[in-house]
Simulated scan of single mutants.
Amino acid sequence: MPAARAPVTAYVALGANLGDARAAVLGAMDALDQVRATQVTARSGLYRSAPVDASGPDYVNAVVQVCTRLPAPELLAALQQLEQAAGRERPYHHAPRTLDLDLLLYGDARIDSPRLTVPHPRMMGRAFVLRPLAEIAPQHVPAEALAAVANQRLQRLDNRNGS
């Protein structure tokens, strides 16, 4: 029998801009907590942001911290299964989404494979990732990175009523 894998703290960005985006993000947070060997340990608030390098409706975004015993590629596969279950299609790059889940950080790991790059290669340039991440893990968000994205439109939503 293999030895139990040590738990790893990872961070996942969530976003949606099709259908009931707020409900999709909140539902994905709950679904992540049901992934095998994975527990959501912190949730940011919800944010509204304009699409970056794309068109379409505004996104609802958030970040969660998870404690997982899954290897990074298995966690990525679980995230992609949740996207598919939410009706995610990929007709073209940066297409609007019913649900988008990105693995931002996986412990201290540096991964550069054809399927997965960690830390996420574009996270430091996106306010919709950095502000929610700073809410739950400020040690991972340098002040200069936040300052660099300060001009990106981002609105914190009231989690109770979506406004």
Results as ranks from 00 to 15, higher is better:
Pro2Cys: 06
Ala4Gly: 13
Arg5Ser: 13
Pro7Ala: 10
Pro7Gln: 00
Pro7Tyr: 01
Val8Asp: 03
Val8Pro: 04
Val12Asn: 04
Leu14Glu: 06
Gly15Ala: 09
Asn17Ile: 01
Asn17His: 09
Gly19Val: 01
Asp20Phe: 07
Ala21Leu: 07
Arg22Glu: 14
Ala24Tyr: 00
Leu26Ile: 13
Gly27His: 08
Gly27Lys: 01
Ala28Lys: 00
Met29His: 14
Met29Asn: 12
Asp30Phe: 02
Ala31Cys: 09
Leu32Lys: 05
Gln34Val: 09
Gln34Asn: 11
Val35Lys: 06
Val35Glu: 05
Arg36His: 14
Ala37Arg: 12
Thr38Glu: 07
Gln39Pro: 14
Val40Leu: 11
Thr41Lys: 08
Ala42Thr: 11
Ala42Val: 08
Ser44Cys: 12
Leu46Ile: 07
Tyr47Ala: 08
Tyr47Gln: 04
Ala50Leu: 08
Pro51Ile: 12
Pro51Glu: 09
Val52Pro: 03
Ala54Thr: 06
Ala54Pro: 00
Ser55Trp: 12
Ser55Leu: 00
Gly56Cys: 06
Gly56Pro: 01
Asp58Cys: 03
Tyr59Lys: 02
Tyr59His: 04
Asn61Cys: 09
Ala62Phe: 05
Val63Ile: 13
Val63Arg: 02
Val64Asp: 03
Val66Gly: 01
Cys67Ala: 12
Cys67Trp: 04
Thr68Cys: 06
Ala72Asp: 12
Leu75Glu: 02
Leu76Asp: 00
Ala78Met: 08
Leu79Lys: 02
Gln80Thr: 11
Gln81Leu: 14
Leu82His: 10
Gln84Arg: 15
Gln84Tyr: 00
Glu89Met: 14
Glu89Cys: 15
Tyr92Phe: 14
His93Asn: 12
His93Val: 15
Pro96Val: 05
Asp102Tyr: 06
Asp102His: 05
Leu103Ala: 09
Leu103Met: 13
Leu104Cys: 13
Leu104Tyr: 03
Leu105Ser: 03
Leu105Glu: 06
Gly107Val: 01
Pro114Lys: 00
Arg115Phe: 13
Leu116Val: 08
Leu116Ser: 03
Thr117Glu: 12
Pro121Ile: 05
Arg122Tyr: 11
Met124Trp: 07
Arg126Phe: 07
Arg126Pro: 01
Arg126Asn: 07
Ala127Asn: 00
Val129Pro: 02
Val129Ser: 01
Val129Glu: 04
Leu130Cys: 12
Leu130Phe: 02
Arg131Phe: 11
Arg131Asn: 11
Pro132Ser: 04
Pro132Leu: 04
Ala134Ser: 10
His140Gly: 03
Glu144His: 15
Glu144Asn: 13
Ala147Met: 04
Val149Met: 03
Val149Ala: 01
Asn151Val: 10
Gln152Pro: 03
Arg153Lys: 12
Arg153Asn: 11
Arg156Asp: 10
Asp158Met: 06
Asn159Asp: 15
Asn161Val: 10
Asn161Phe: 11
Asn161Met: 11
Gly162Ile: 04
